[in-house]
Write a protein that binds this DNA or RNA. Structure first.
Lengths: 112, 112
DNA sequence: CTTGTAATTAACCGATTGGTTAAATATAGA
DNA sequence: TCTATATTTAACCAATCGGTTAATTACAAG
């Protein structure tokens, strides 16, 4: 019943707000209110998003004064990337086939 | 309100059953019952998973007799991979830092 | 000690998810 | 036509999701 890391990671990535948060964090740490700023959602909503990201191991949080800065933890992203790389051959093959098809079309086109 | 492609893709990938289906399909087409075989879930459950994968553009389906074979469509996976590549520098940097830290530890260890 | 700011928790809401069983549909073949 | 197989649809269910508002906690600074 406890979802595996990969499922947690992909689930966390399945939300545009959370992806935007990660993108923001890739250029440096930020507090919750800073992260909330670009979105018109409430503070508790941001807290929830950060919890999802934290539970997936995508971010970590420290503590300074009343702030709790968020820091990107890219290892989980790498694991997700490794999973997808498994399919690289598949998409390269299918792109090759598309390319061959287009060339064939072109050949027919100039022959007509 | 309609979720973007990337969100659909990551959401589809956030389930271990669906990831297993994709892995299975990376070695060739398969029918719904063939795909269901390794899991102890009902046929309608498989139908739903296939719908999710299809809506995300991760598979396509044809029709022969009473079968509707599934085929992997790897382009959406590639898009997801492109998104993750954006963070490659981040995780390589953090691995470098880990490496440096471990070397530092080693140096101190052999000095003691 | 009071005030202001940051952040979280609690309680709630409607929509979606992942599963079920039962019924319906589609096709092949005797 | 009748039967068996493949698949989908319908209806339901409990759990999770992404959001809200209101209240609470934590800390710094007057």
């Amino acid at each position: 019943m406890p979802p595996d890391t990969l499922s947690l990671t992909f689930a966390a990535l399945a939300d545009p707000t959370r992806r935007a948060i990660l993108t923001r964090l890739s250029s440096g740490e930020a507090s919750a209110t800073e992260l909330a700023e670009p979105f018109h959602i409430s503070a508790p909503a941001i807290t929830k998003h950060l919890k999802v990201l934290e539970r997936a191991g995508l971010i970590s949080r420290s503590k300074q004064a009343q702030f709790r800065p968020c820091k990107l933890e890219p290892q989980a992203l790498q694991q997700a990337s490794v999973f997808l790389e498994q399919y690289r051959q598949c998409w390269e093959q299918s792109l090759d086939r598309l390319d061959a098809y287009l060339q064939e079309l072109q050949a027919k086109g100039s022959a007509a």
